[in-house]
Structures are given as structure tokens and as C-alpha cells.
Write a protein that binds this DNA or RNA. Structure first.
Lengths: 217, 217
DNA sequence: GTCTATAACGGGATAGAC
DNA sequence: GTCTATCCCGTTATAGAC
């Protein structure tokens, strides 16, 4: 295989970036782990930034495709009407959860990468996140705004932002480890966790001022 | 003032850590911004890690104190009964939002730091977040579990985790800038945004399988 | 308590052989 | 397409004068 080294670099980079962050991963340990050397990175990707972008793009492309396809399908199902919020959320969340379950052996994924990127330099966030996810997120935002016209576009946008924040951190490893001592991550099956997350987010997105203060008690 | 340099270092460090992350901030630019030099850091804090911990602790101490005080107060108000979910959330969220508004001129805060830390090395997360916020989070989790016994402790714990994730990223600068192109951050007043966040999270925390699929349409 | 100067190290990028 | 060797820079940490 001519580009075997290239793929190996992508795999190892994805894994290490997700685990230790981008700036926390040096090309030295990266290439040593991949069984190659520094020069290979610069030959195949031009620079570390080039490698970062390639790693990100490989998953983002597939993820965006699946998300938009799922959304289009459910929108086609309910002719003329808008799909329920849960279904829109599922179209956004499920493809990532599916990926997580499929790639479970290698502990690397764009879903975790998305969280990792948060703390990189603003330029990196701008270049990667907005570029790779901007249009898809805008598309889903529209769908949600159409599904809840009574809330107003601004409020839905703000709540969608909250949802994205939750999603970003939920599937990261580090967040599960901390903050609540003694309470390990609940389910190993990410697809199941996704359903519980959808319940949580859908209720939050739909929240109205008329929410009952005490449910049943 | 004898320890003027020390305070200056803490202020500048907090600001830069929140803006560029910990590993993204070098002691060189940090000390130059503070108008001092490398040696001062090691004299006052022993190492960069020592500085990080001091920066974190200064805000965490005050934040935990305020959060627990607010919670104790609202629990005292409703004798014997459990306070509503919104009030518990407000006791957790409002102190941070207050801090943000008060320290607005300097754009630094533990609330943003909390997000920044996410992508640092796991050791940093473990050392800082769990240590500084562990007991307080556990205390609030108990309160929420008492407020919603019908949901079961595990589900409440999982949803509280979602809430913490949302809170962590919501007040970060970077997250607002990306992901949804063309939609700048909504309100400048963080206390107001906190109330909207409370609505969102409370509805999510309380979500039941009986949530209506379409609210009013 | 604060400084300058420097040590000791690790980072990404590159040249050039093969 | 892959390697070794090296360059150059920025990093933290430290020594020692004041």
C-alpha cells in the first residue's frame, strides 16, 4: 500500500488528539507511536496544522453527511409538517453515537475531538469547528426554529447552543471522570445514552414559562 | 504593598488562562504582561502548576462558599420540604453569573476557566476540578435527587452531569463565537442569561417519558 | 523581593541521503 | 515515499547579583 503511513498517522493522531488535546500532543510522540518519523508528517500533511485538519475532516465529512441525510429523511416522512423536536435532535445526535459505538476499539472520535478543540487557540476553533460544522448546525437550527415557531428564533438559537455545549462535553472522556466523585459514567452503550440525552435536551428546548414548578411530588 | 507582584501575577494569569488556555499561555508572555519576569512566578508559586492552582483556588473558594450558602438559605426557607429544581439550579448558577458581571471589566473568571481546563491534561483536570468542585457538586446532586425522587438517583445524576456540561461551555467565550455562524451571543448581561439557562436545564432535569410531543403548535 | 542571565529541554520545521 | 540529522525557536526552571 502506497499511503499506508498516511493512514496510520491519521489514526494515531486522532487517538492522541482526542486523548490529550492537540497542543498536548507533540509530533515526536505521535510519529513514534505510529512507528514512523517527523518528516513523514510534513511530507503528507505539510505541517502539524495540516495533520489536524485532515484528522478532523475525515470524520466531519461522514458525520455531516449522515446527519443531513437523517434530517432530510424525517422531514420527507411528515409531508409539509415539521418533524417533532426529538426526531430532529436524534438526526443530529445519533450519527455521532453510532460512530462511537462502531469505533469503540479505537478510543478516538470526532465527537471527543469536538470537545478537545474547545480549549485550543481561538484560531483553531474558528478554523475547524465553524468550517466543518457551521452549515450543518445552521441547517438543524432552522429545522428546530420551524418546529417551535412560538418560542421565537432567538430563544431557539440560544437553547440550541446550550444543546451543542451539552453534546460536546457529554461524550468526552475527561468530563465523565471528574466533577461528580463516586459516580462513574452510567451506560457503556453510547446509543442508549444518546436517547436519554435526547429526552433531556428536547425538554429543555421546549421549556416554556408555563412549566409546572413541582411536577408531582 | 509587599505582595503586589503576586496579586498582579494572579490577575494576569487568570485572564490569560481563561482566554488562551493553560498550556496555551507561556510564562514568558504572562510575566511580560504583568510587568515582571519569569523568576517572580517561581518565587511566589514555585512553578507554573503552583500558579495555576493558586489562580483556580482564589475563585473556587469564593464560588463554593456562595453556592453552598445560597443552597442552605433556600433549603431553610421551605421547612422540611425540598426546594423546587429551579431554585436549586439558581443557587448553583447565580453566584458564577454574579461573578461574571462584577468582574466584567477584567474578562477573566473561574467560570470560563472551568471550561478551559477541560482540554488540559487529565492530571490537571483531576487535580483542579475534582478537588475544587467535587464536594459542592455532590452536595447539589443530593439536593436535586431529593427534589425529584420519582426519577431515580442515577437518572438525576446523569442529567446533572449534562447540566454541568452545559454550564461549563455556556459561559466560555470561544463557544459563543463558533458553531452557529451569523448568530452572535445574545445578551451581554450574564445574570439574565443565567435565568434563561435555568429554564432550559430545569425542564431537562424534570423531563419525563410523558413529555408532550408537540406543545401547542 | 525583584531582577538578569542562562541552563536544560522539547517543540515544529527542514535538508538531503536513500 | 521514507529515513536520519540538524536547525532554530520557545518553553520552564534555576543560579546568583542586587
Amino acid at each position: 500500500m502506497p499511503t499506508h503511513t498516511r493512514d496510520k498517522l491519521l489514526d494515531v493522531a486522532e487517538e492522541l488528539f482526542a486523548a490529550k488535546g492537540i497542543s498536548g500532543t507533540s509530533l515526536r510522540v505521535l510519529t513514534k507511536t505510529a512507528g514512523t518519523n517527523l518528516a513523514a508528517v510534513h511530507y503528507h500533511f505539510g505541517s502539524k496544522d495540516g495533520l489536524v485538519d485532515a484528522v478532523f475532516e475525515r470524520r466531519a465529512t461522514a458525520l455531516n453527511r449522515d446527519r443531513l441525510a437523517d434530517l432530510a429523511r424525517i422531514e420527507a416522512t411528515c409531508e409539509g409538517d415539521t418533524p417533532p423536536v426529538e426526531d430532529i435532535l436524534r438526526a443530529f445526535i445519533a450519527p455521532g453515537a453510532r460512530m462511537l459505538d462502531e469505533l469503540k476499539d479505537r478510543r478516538a472520535l470526532i465527537v471527543r475531538l469536538r470537545c478537545r478543540v474547545e480549549a485550543e487557540a481561538p484560531a483553531v476553533v474558528e478554523a475547524l469547528v465553524r468550517r466543518h460544522f457551521g452549515v450543518t448546525c445552521a441547517r438543524f437550527l432552522e429545522a428546530l426554529q420551524r418546529a417551535m415557531p412560538e418560542l421565537g428564533k432567538e430563544l431557539v438559537a440560544e437553547r440550541f447552543r446550550y444543546s451543542l455545549a451539552t453534546l460536546s462535553l457529554t461524550f468526552s472522556e475527561t468530563f465523565d471522570l471528574d466533577t461528580i466523585p463516586g459516580h462513574p459514567p452510567t451506560g457503556s452503550h453510547d446509543a442508549l445514552r444518546a436517547e436519554r440525552l435526547i429526552d433531556f435536551l428536547a425538554a429543555g428546548l421546549r421549556a416554556g414559562p408555563d412549566t409546572p414548578r413541582r411536577p408531582s411530588a
